[in-house]
Design a protein around this nucleic acid. Sequence first.
DNA 1: TAGATTGTTAATCGATTAACAATC
DNA 2: TAGATTGTTAATCGATTAACAATC
Lengths: 215, 215
Amino acid sequence: MQKRDKISLSVIRRLPRYYRFLDDLRSNDILRISSRELSERMGITASQIRQDLNCFGEFGQQGYGYNVDLLYNEICKILGVEKGYKTIMIGAGNLGRAIATHMNFGRLGFNLIGIFDNNEYVIGKKLMGIEILPNENLESFCGEYNPTAAILCIPKDSAQEMCDQLIHFGIIGFWNFSHYDLGLLNPNIVVENVHLGDSLMILSYRMQKQMEDVK
Amino acid sequence: MQKRDKISLSVIRRLPRYYRFLDDLRSNDILRISSRELSERMGITASQIRQDLNCFGEFGQQGYGYNVDLLYNEICKILGVEKGYKTIMIGAGNLGRAIATHMNFGRLGFNLIGIFDNNEYVIGKKLMGIEILPNENLESFCGEYNPTAAILCIPKDSAQEMCDQLIHFGIIGFWNFSHYDLGLLNPNIVVENVHLGDSLMILSYRMQKQMEDVK
DNA sequence: TAGATTGTTAATCGATTAACAATC
DNA sequence: TAGATTGTTAATCGATTAACAATC
């Protein structure tokens, strides 16, 4: 699977983007592509593409380039999107409900099997065919079904406590929307903190800059 | 505002995180903090903090550290979150509605003034006190209110076309949720592409890695 | 075979960390 | 004043880009 020992996070963060572009090429029935042409489409250097891919294997062929389908499937495997990690969601408020309905979990490597909330108005309702259960059921649910990933759509204040609890119940991967930086302490878990607010503030900064430059 | 000429994106992307941690310190009535202590809380080096902040000015004091409130306000200004850019949202499906209700735009530098969709079932309904209008009203609306930012919660296929149109109507900043890499062509606009799927795939990769390592 | 393009090494560039004089 | 901690320069580290021999 992997040629090099330690693959840098910079490389890993680019993989999904390759994956998307290759998927696009596939849908357009493009069978082969050179690093140069892909680099032009993606706005990065061909050198970087070749370096990145060679962390994982030799997927190309001199004089030919890369077979789109083959490369797509390799990145699929590298990312592990066929694993379908059993996943629970904590918090079925506005954001949780939107994430649950909007994301194509199956294609992204996850399998949503449980949704939990403490609000009596949503408990018992269904989302994507899944009944929303009260948080108190978490332990027994995890005991029975052994999910490995959790999506946190809960407020900042309860995030760390919930995280600790879930680790105890066997969760090792967290997709965290709670405006809180999870995972600074525990090196045995994997966390993707999604900070939508940060992204918006960065846009604000850059718009400001852009407007100054135009002036 | 700014000491150095060109500030790297790496630095900028860390600013909102400083902002959040400082906000937290404020709420806990902590008046001063040294780069060393902040570095321990944030899990980065003190050196990096001092370097980052010194891109913008000299906000600390030798032997004392940084005044939390002062630094918070400086970062506020740097990020431009007091600007309140007039903003429109395109697409009021699941995700759009959740974003509209969930984000605290005011605190993040934006002011949501219009929401647009083409689905007859949502047109006319209200979200956060704003009536959802049909896309055909976009031009006249922009002509009248001159928004500068747009949030795209629309499908991939229509993203580029919509973007081009909105540039024409005066939009310069895009917060893009459409699974499409906007802004590769036009250097006069500012784009924050939010790829939730990418984040999830990265989690998948890292969980896989984590499980291998434990074995 | 000749042309194209990879995989990989070397060179460059930029970002992070360390060190320390300046100074509160 | 003595201790603490900044701002800043220098050293290190890592990531990106360039170059090119290998080879399809």
